[in-house]
Amino acid sequence: MGNGGALTEAVYYILLTLLQPRHGYGIMQTVEGLTGGRVRLAAGTLYGAISTMLDKGWITALPGEGEGRRKEYLITAEGMSVLREELARLEELATNGKKLLEERENEGNLL
């Protein structure tokens, strides 16, 4: 389970893409596509995150080998609950941001 802290963008997107089984490069491509090219996970960053998340039990390596002897990964029940917690946190961030900025605009403070 998460410790209440924020996930890194890389970890959040890896969890999200592993709602379906994917190998490392599949994760890279999906994240790049989802963010319109904004988030390009580099191999070292991705591999490090995968190994930490495997240790934490948030994702699991699927038995056997996928296409081209590449290991495939999938989110676990624990990873799902971390992902849901993070989504709630992100929603709170966005709601508070919008609310306070709108209030300021309504007060006529345009900066």
Binding site: E9, A10, V39, R40, L41, A42, G44, T45, G48, A49
Partner: peptide, 13 residues
């Protein structure tokens, strides 16, 4: 832009 680490955290590690 070829890099092996794409965020500060993994770069520091």
């Amino acid at each position: 832009d070829f890099r092996l680490f794409s965020d500060n955290r993994s770069q520091a590690e």
